[in-house]
Design a binder for these strands. Structure first.
Length: 903
RNA sequence: GCCGCUGUGGUGGAAUUGGUAGACACGUUGGACUUAAAAUCCAAUGGGCCUUAAAAGCCCGUACCGGUUCGAGUCCGGUCAGCGGUACCA
């Protein structure tokens, strides 16, 4: 017996690649063009590799192996984004040092990755928690600090008592922590902030030059949220010298600003509120302060506010307008105050209606008594003339220009741009993160000198949060208390640590030069390798990681550390792999089966009945139902109490009188659902090559797609066919007798060259699924041949090798070739060999295919000959008999279409 | 609500610039091999109609409605559904 045994050949070749350092990147060779392929930095979690990881990793591995064979100097590294909350929480629970947990998890991840045969240069492995690495993370922070891009501020932050830490806005989802779902409240704290807003415009502009999907670029643009408008100053009546600055995108509606609104946190609120209103205002402001973002969001539809009793002066009309306070105005955006134009803004309109404020039309075209008129196209301004400036009759865009000109002239305002993007909250109250290279002397922050880096994490005894928002580091007195090396004064170390994003913001640079000691990366190597040519990862990092990394990169660019404006030239986001499709019947308490629509409103107890795919049929209404003929077969019944039970004959005759609706869908893999596929199990049963191949064969890389175990079996069968194509299974495991060193015939060569073309084009275009299909087509054909020419088998293995490298290496060796298949040049296809002697045209009559004609290639471009032959084709001829030919369409090498009408 | 993406057989998907819709797989059915099973191989497989049967033929069909075109899965307008992002951003 000599059948295909991945469990034997895969470890063998993994060992070979390790020992021969097959995939070590040669840094000294500058003669070859470079190609930098990068996977998104994994967090080595305790649960090990998920099937989602190998999806992106296989894609990059295929590209890396292919580019190497194409003669590129390829950089394809892997490392660990290993700081983070889970290891710390585990430490709190068990007292295990996060370093130990992290090392263990990394070991496991690495073993798993190696078992999949990825062509990483493991000599470049990096780890964000290693002092050699975070030394440079700290160094970059110092540069940010020196450039004035890092500052401390007292900001209301998301304090999560349960986690004992402050979370970034993006780690809070619907008022709960992203990790664990614990409640989050707002409280002010001294925090480190990074001025990413200073780079907003460049982050926006430089998106243009990137080869990223439009949807990701759009998400980034929305996140940055650029708005163009004007800042306008309103004087406060009766408060000499007090002004309210507002930002508006609609300065053209200034004449319609009939009231103003301040955010509850606005500094003027206390100053201008009249005594009569003070008690009411204080209560409102306090209530708003206590609300989380969630509460504010929930009140979306029911706006509340309180009149300050004060009035401001509309600079255009000179009229007094009331100043309100309402929490629909956010202190964090623009100036924290707005001019309200209820006639032309939906929120303002709603608020004005509720509180009986004046609604004035200043842009014609709507009915402002019924709704805000927000449309700008084709609308002209009205009621907008104060004797000095008139907008009447102007289109919105012109009106904006005119009024801004007037405001600037009078010193009442100016054109302005605002971004939704906010500064980056950069500190965390955690132990397991990079310490800030900062000491506090006399209450002032002072950076350590670069020579003192790295500032290493001290060991602690206990990891519990102190119950205060401070990090566990605050409790380590002999680390926290230090002296200023310059002045000898007593100093305190910064006890916050950096967020997990820090280490992943620049790791792509460290891979280039992991042992460099004079900086994050040497200039010479950076210039050779950057930018990253291909970056693959999940879409969950679409905004934050990619925006933060781009920000740091631009700072480093300004410092001259890097030579490119952008870090990642091409980005591909893999789609999520979902669990196997589940076919479920839902049954209500009283026995009725529920449709999808019923489920939306039903709230009682549910029994769920899980069916197999072949027990289900599709009905006319595009839904699924139970196949009555299969109803007696075993099903899994999940009772409302959570009990699971296998039952045969679950459905009674009465149940089957009507169609039983079935829900067919696949869900995100999750432990609680029990639909998680463990890649180790797949490797054990089918091998790494099958797993790799299947993950690529499932469908387009960027699309989400459901897992299917029988799909894995399908590609496994293909690999076995490849094996049998070349190996004599019945005999002693030598070559298959049909594999012979003979010349290939024309048809065989054509089959190979078609495969070469398709596989090559598809790798270039990231269409791995159709590339595999081309490999299958070749094998299906080759299996029929009476001889299997060695040279063709050889070239086929080269095509297979990026996808199924272990099998390719093994067969390469058994065919008697030297060295590693990974070190061979990629085969080129010969266009001459793709051409066949004949051409087959489909012939249409009135756009419908009625026949086919085949003629020698030499005649295929001859319209006369083709049409003559087409008209003779019996299937076509019968439609021409009683008809009159109106038009003859001939597209060379594509189609013939004869248009007729009844005679 | 707003923005974006996606809708193709029983299933995953293919059709790269408008040119024979369903490649390649999975599943199913039938057959071969086998004491039997697994594995493997062969055949059929979008739906319907016609036909004793076969060969062949015809009609319908890419979420739905409409349009452009000799010709539309592909382009345009509208609708619906699913997924993702975002949410008082002035």
């Amino acid at each position: 017996m000599n059948d295909y045994k991945p469990s034997q050949i895969e470890p063998k070749w993994q060992r070979y690649w390790d020992e021969h350092k097959t995939f070590k990147t040669d840094d000294s060779d500058r003669s070859k063009p470079k190609y930098y392929v990068l996977d998104m930095f994994p967090y080595p979690s305790g649960s090990g590799l998920h099937v989602g990881h190998p999806e992106g990793y296989t894609a990059t591995d295929i590209v890396a192996r292919y580019k190497r064979m194409k003669g590129f100097n390829v950089l394809h590294p892997m490392g660990w984004d290993a700081f983070g909350l889970p290891a710390e929480q585990y430490a709190i629970k068990t007292g295990t040092h996060p370093r130990i947990t992290t090392e263990k998890n990394i070991e496991r991840f690495k073993t798993q990755l190696k078992s999949l045969g990825f062509a990483y240069d493991w000599d470049r492995e990096i780890n964000t928690t290693s002092p050699d690495y975070y030394r440079w993370t700290q160094w970059i922070f110092l540069q940010l600090y020196k450039k004035g891009l890092a500052y401390q501020a007292d900001v209301p932050v998301n304090w999560c008592p349960e986690l004992g830490t402050v979370l970034a806005n993006e780690e809070v989802i619907d008022g709960k922590s992203e990790v664990g779902g614990f409640p989050v409240i707002r409280r002010p704290m001294r925090q480190w902030m990074l001025k990413i807003t200073e780079y907003a415009e460049r982050l926006l502009e430089d998106l243009e030059e990137l080869d990223w999907s439009e949807s990701i670029k759009l998400m980034q643009r929305n996140w940055i949220g650029k708005s163009v408008g004007a800042n306008i100053t309103f004087k406060v009546a009766g408060h000499e010298g007090e002004e309210i600055r507002v930002f508006t995108t609609r300065p053209d509606t200034l004449f319609g600003a009939t009231y103003m609104v301040l955010a509850p946190e606005h500094e003027l609120v206390a100053k201008i509120t009249t005594d009569a209103k003070r008690a009411e205002m204080d209560a409102y402001v306090e209530q708003a302060a206590r609300k989380s973002d969630l509460d504010r969001g929930e009140l979306n539809k029911n706006k509340t506010g309180v009149f300050t009793g004060a009035y401001a002066v509309n600079p255009a009309t000179g009229e007094s307008v009331p100043v309100w306070v309402a929490d629909y105005v956010l202190i964090t955006y623009g100036t924290g105050a707005i001019m309200a134009v209820p006639g032309h803004d939906e929120r303002d309109w709603e608020f004005a209606k509720k509180y009986g404020l004046e609604i004035r039309e200043v842009v014609a075209g709507g009915d402002v008594s019924k709704a805000a008129h927000t449309q700008t196209e084709g609308s002209a301004c009205v009621n907008s003339d104060n004797g000095e400036v008139s907008l009447n009759g102007l289109a919105v865009d012109e009106a904006k220009q005119r009024i801004i000109g007037w405001l600037e002239e009078k010193g009442l305002g100016e054109g302005a741009v605002t971004y939704k993007l906010r500064d980056w909250l950069f500190s965390r109250q955690r132990y397991w993160g990079e310490p800030f290279p900062i000491i506090h002397v006399d209450g002032q922050p002072k950076p350590l000198s670069e020579a003192d880096l790295p500032l290493t994490l001290p060991d602690v005894e206990r990891y519990e949060p102190s119950g205060t928002p401070e990090s566990p580091l605050a409790g380590i007195t002999d680390w926290v208390e230090t002296t200023d090396p310059e002045t000898g004064k007593p100093a305190r170390r910064e006890t916050n640590t950096m967020p997990q994003w820090a280490g992943s913001c620049w790791y792509y640079l460290r891979f280039i030069d992991p042992d460099y000691t004079q900086g994050p990366v040497s200039k010479e190597k950076e210039q050779y390798w950057m930018p990253v040519d291909l970056y693959v990862g999940g879409a969950e990092h679409a905004v934050l990681h990619l925006l933060y990394a781009r920000f740091w990169h631009k700072v480093l660019y300004d410092l001259g550390v890097v030579s490119t404006k952008e870090p990642f030239y091409k980005l591909v986001n893999q789609g999520m792999i979902l669990g196997e499709v589940e076919y479920t019947v839902y049954r209500a308490e009283y026995g009725r089966f529920l449709t999808q629509d019923d489920l939306k409103t039903y709230s009682g107890e549910l029994t769920r009945i899980r069916l197999r795919q072949d027990q289900v049929t599709k009905n006319d209404a595009e839904g699924y139902e139970l196949d009555p003929s299969r109803a007696a077969e075993p099903v899994t019944v999940m009772h409302p109490n959570g009990k699971k039970e296998e039952m045969s004959g679950y459905f009674s005759d009465a149940d089957l009188k009507q169609a039983v609706p079935v829900e067919a869908r696949s869900f995100k893999m999750s432990k609680s659902r029990g639909n998680v596929i463990n890649p180790d199990e797949v490797v054990k049963q089918y091998g790494a090559d099958a797993l790799r191949l299947y993950e690529m064969f499932m469908g387009p890389l960027e699309q989400p797609k459901p897992w299917s175990m029988s799909g894995v079996e399908g590609v496994y069968r293909f690999l076995k066919r490849v094996w049998r194509l070349m190996i004599d299974e019945e005999g002693d495991g030598g070559l298959h007798p049909l594999v012979q060193d003979v010349a290939a015939d024309r048809a065989q060569e054509k089959a190979l060259h078609e495969a070469i073309k398709k596989v090559t084009d598809d790798i270039e275009g990231f269409r791995f699924n159709t590339g595999i299909s081309a490999l299958m087509i070749f094998v299906n054909e080759a299996m029929q041949w009476e001889q299997r020419p060695l040279g063709l088998m050889r070239d086929f293995l080269l095509l297979l090798s990026p996808y199924a490298p272990h099998l390719a290496e093994e067969l390469w060796e058994r065919l008697g070739f030297e060295a590693s298949v990974a070190e061979q040049p990629w085969p080129e296809y010969d266009p001459a060999k793709l051409i066949s002697d004949v051409k087959t045209y489909a012939v249409q009559v009135n756009g419908k295919v009625r026949g086919e004609i085949t003629l020698p290639l030499s005649d295929a471009g001859d319209k006369e000959k083709v049409l003559a032959l087409a008209k003779e084709e019996p299937g076509v001829a019968k439609y021409l008999k009683e008809a009159q030919i109106v038009k003859e369409v001939f597209v060379p090498m594509r189609i013939v279409n004869i248009v007729v009408k009844p005679a």
